Simulated assay, not measured.
Amino acid sequence: MLTVAVLISGTGSNLRALLEAASEPGFPARVIAVGADRQADGFVHAEHYGIPTFMVPFEEFETREDWGRELLAHLDVWAPDLVILSGLMRLLPAAVVEAWSPRMLNTHPAYLPEFPGAHGVRDALAAGVSETGASVIVVDNGVDTGPILAQERVPVLPDDTEHTLHERIKPVERRLLIDAVRRVASGELDLTQTA
Rank of each mutant, 00 (worst) to 15 (best):
P113G: 11
F27A: 12
A185W: 02
G187R: 02
G26R: 12
I148W: 02
R30V: 00
A40Y: 01
L91Y: 08
A126P: 14
V31L: 06
F27Q: 15
S101M: 01
W100D: 07
H74D: 13
Y49Q: 07
L157Y: 07
F58A: 09
H108K: 06
L105S: 06
S101C: 13
V181W: 09
L19A: 01
V96E: 04
A118Y: 11
E131F: 13
G12M: 12
E65Q: 10
A46C: 02
R182Q: 11
E70Y: 12
L149I: 09
A134H: 12
G50L: 02
H74A: 12
V31E: 03
P158K: 06
S101P: 14
D66W: 15
L125A: 06
H166M: 10
G42C: 02
L71K: 01
E47R: 15
A180D: 13
I84Q: 08
P57A: 04
R38Y: 06
A95K: 13
E20C: 07
A185G: 01
M104R: 01
T192M: 11
A22L: 04
A46T: 10
G142M: 07
F43R: 01
E60T: 12
T11N: 14
A79I: 09
R174L: 03
T192R: 08
F61H: 13
L189N: 07
M55N: 13
D123T: 09
T63A: 09
A180Y: 11
V4F: 04
A134G: 09
I8F: 14
D123M: 13
G146M: 03
W67R: 05
R182P: 10
F43L: 08
A33K: 04
N14Q: 08
R174C: 05
T145C: 05
G117W: 14
M89K: 00
E65K: 07
L18E: 00
R16P: 13
V83M: 12
L177D: 05
A17M: 11
R103K: 12
Y49F: 15
F27M: 13
L15S: 05
L125F: 10
A150N: 15
R38L: 02
V121Q: 02
G87A: 06
P102V: 10
F61Q: 12
E162G: 14
L157N: 03
